[in-house]
């Protein structure tokens, strides 16, 4: 079978230790968490880090907890925990939607939210999920901690705001009233990356949308945050025509590329359908009317 190229290895026992290891080895060092993106790339020799810093022992980064009006998710939280979290199910049901269709249960036992976000594969679901719910991420480096929005987090394909020598430590999601969310994905086969996927979050108050987040996976070179959908929906009462219009906007604003999963026109079409479905379901959840 394919084998990785030679590399060094050490296991970090604390975030500070991991930072120190990264500092010691410079830009050719890579963190390894679940390993399900990095190791296949290393086997293909598309990634050839000279030194791996294993952060799987950092239990301090594995948590999903409520802190006042914020849900804090540690970067080392595994997919399976996101899928099963009662706290997330109560406030952000789209995590369970997405996790049910990310890879397969065995991969989900191992892969982490931090790894998924930092891999920044444009087809990856959790980046869209976090963008839709307007999460912030916490990045720690030698100079201390900084908090960036998902908007700022995605810099380019496979490139994030996490610089060499830094670690993504936490995802923070504000809890606001009237929330509902959903993730919709079409894949070629169970376990595959999306042909296209849409994450929607809505906050309903007084019969109208107080706020809306809509982000897309596999619909552009990076996760696509469709801000125009929020602009359209805010202040409006929920309705099927509005969802259709939002779908049309998303189909227009996305920037999909043709690949083995399909041509551009099909992906745009899918984005429209999935946007509509995700908004519809998110709204039903917000209104507690889900069928």
């Amino acid at each position: 079978m394919q084998t990785p190229a030679p590399c060094g290895y050490e296991r970090a026992t604390s975030v500070d230790g991991a930072l120190a290891a990264l500092a010691a080895h410079g830009p050719t060092a890579r963190l390894i968490a679940g390993g399900h993106s990095l190791l296949p790339m290393m086997k293909l020799r598309l990634a050839t880090p000279e030194h791996l810093v294993d952060i799987n022992d950092l239990d301090e980064l594995a948590y999903i907890e409520r802190d006042g009006d914020v849900i804090r998710i540690g970067a080392m939280t595994r997919h399976v925990e996101l899928q099963r979290s009662a706290l997330l199910a109560e406030h952000f049901a789209l995590f369970a939607d997405a996790e049910a269709v990310i890879a397969d249960p065995v991969v989900r036992n191992r892969g982490t939210i931090g790894g998924s976000l930092c891999q920044a594969d444009p087809g990856e679901d959790l980046s869209a999920v976090c963008a839709a719910i307007k999460a912030d991420v916490v990045i720690r480096g030698p100079a201390g901690e900084r908090v960036v929005s998902m908007d700022e987090f995605h810099v380019g394909p496979y490139v994030t705001a996490v610089a060499d020598g830094e670690i993504l430590t936490e995802i923070r999601v504000p809890i606001r009233p009237g929330a509902g969310s959903a993730h919709e994905k079409v894949e070629r086969r169970a376990g595959d990356f999306a042909i296209a996927a849409a994450s929607a979050a809505v906050w309903v108050g007084g019969g109208t949308f107080a706020d809306v987040g809509l982000a897309l996976a596999a619909a552009g070179p990076i996760t696509v945050d469709v801000t125009r959908v929020g602009e359209l929906l805010r202040g409006q009462p929920p309705g099927e025509e509005l969802f259709e219009a939002a779908g049309a906007i998303a189909a227009e604003d996305c920037m999909p590329m043709a690949d083995t999963r399909g041509p551009v026109d099909y992906k745009r079409h899918l984005v429209g359908v999935l946007t509509k479905r995700a908004l519809r379901r998110a709204t039903a959840r917000a209104l507690q009317q889900e069928a």
């Binding site: 390894i32 390993g35 190791l39 791996l52």
Partner: peptide, 10 residues
Amino acid sequence: VKSCTVLAAM
């Protein structure tokens, strides 16, 4: 877990 995607060291 898939043991092809874990290093022995890990």
